[in-house]
């Protein structure tokens, strides 16, 4: 599989003490749905803005094996904040997109507008947040590009529309495109992503296939006074009053503890995996 986006040593600082993105290496492969997870302020949006060339950065980013500025026609982006010409109607917006976007499919766009139950002739300024998001997505999905980038695409959508959007994202890769998106909603990521990257404090701390998390990682619940582990055997360690929780992919460590009937062990789902990474890494 070739890389659709290849990020090497990306660094980005905004004024102030905290650096937004630090030494990020990230590869997005052809045909995958890649989800970028992380708490607010982890650097997800900055990474996306860097890929799109919306901010200055240091490091190397290639998009579709070239420079972003020569590839814009083949990329569609949905930002978290959607701004529109508010005086337009969906009909007018479709017409506008058709006139400026080379790969825009007008009929497909009109289909989506209908499917998302948006009023064709109402001014966008009268739309709710969810309606604006739906329209933005309808216009985006009609572009037939190689790479779609979404920043929190389902935020503010009702459950039915969210379902529609997730299904469309899935169909997008069936047609051969690649998707990179950020999300807070783990259950959604579980449904449509094949790989995830977790960002924390400007770093990418994990990248991998969802199925590989289940295959390679184990979570052990141990007595609080358990000390027979080292930092290089663990990915995250969380201690509370009742127990010690260890996330690990160390085969020797797993082998040693797996057969101990006193030890509780589980296969992490994405939610548990993410929570442990988030809260347990600082102790490693």
């Amino acid at each position: 599989m070739s890389e659709v986006v290849n990020i090497k040593k990306l660094n980005k600082a905004y004024p102030g003490p905290v650096q937004a993105v630090r030494n990020v290496d990230l590869q997005i492969k052809q045909g995958e749905v890649h989800a970028l997870l992380g708490p607010n302020g982890a650097g997800k949006t900055t990474t996306i803005k860097s890929i799109l060339g919306f901010v200055n950065y240091s490091g190397n980013i290639s998009v579709l094996n070239g420079d972003i500025d020569s590839r814009r026609d083949r990329i569609a982006f949905v930002p978290e904040e959607k701004s529109f010409y508010e005086f337009l109607t969906p009909k007018g917006a479709v017409r506008l997109c058709e006139s400026i976007l080379p790969s825009f499919d007008k009929n497909l766009a009109l289909d989506y507008v209908k499917r998302f139950s948006l009023p064709m002739n109402k001014k966008i300024r009268e739309f709710s947040h969810g309606m604006k998001t739906s329209l933005y997505l309808a216009l985006t999905f009609s572009q037939g590009v190689d790479l779609y980038i979404f920043d929190e695409p389902t935020w503010g959508l009702d459950p039915i529309r969210r379902d529609d959007v997730l299904n469309i994202i899935r169909n997008t890769i069936i047609e051969g495109s690649t998707v990179l998106y950020t999300s807070h909603i783990i259950s959604e990521v579980e449904r449509i992503a094949d790989r995830v990257s977790i960002m924390m404090d400007g770093h990418v701390v994990f990248t991998g296939y969802l199925d590989d998390i289940k295959e390679r990682f184990r979570v052990f619940y141990l007595p609080v006074d358990f000390t027979d582990y080292s930092a290089d055997q663990t990915e995250a360690v969380l201690k509370d009053r009742e127990k010690l929780t260890i996330l690990t992919r160390n085969v020797d460590f797993i082998d040693k503890l797996e057969d101990d009937p006193q030890v509780e062990i589980t296969v992490p789902d994405l939610e548990l995996f993410f929570q442990l990474f988030l809260r347990g890494r600082q102790y490693v």
């Binding site: 045909g31 995958e32 749905v33 899935r170 890769i173 449904r191 449509i192 969802l210």
Partner: peptide, 11 residues
């Protein structure tokens, strides 16, 4: 099948 069972086609 991916559409049917609602999972990622790559899977």
């Amino acid at each position: 099948l991916a559409r049917d069972i609602n999972v990622n086609p790559n899977t």
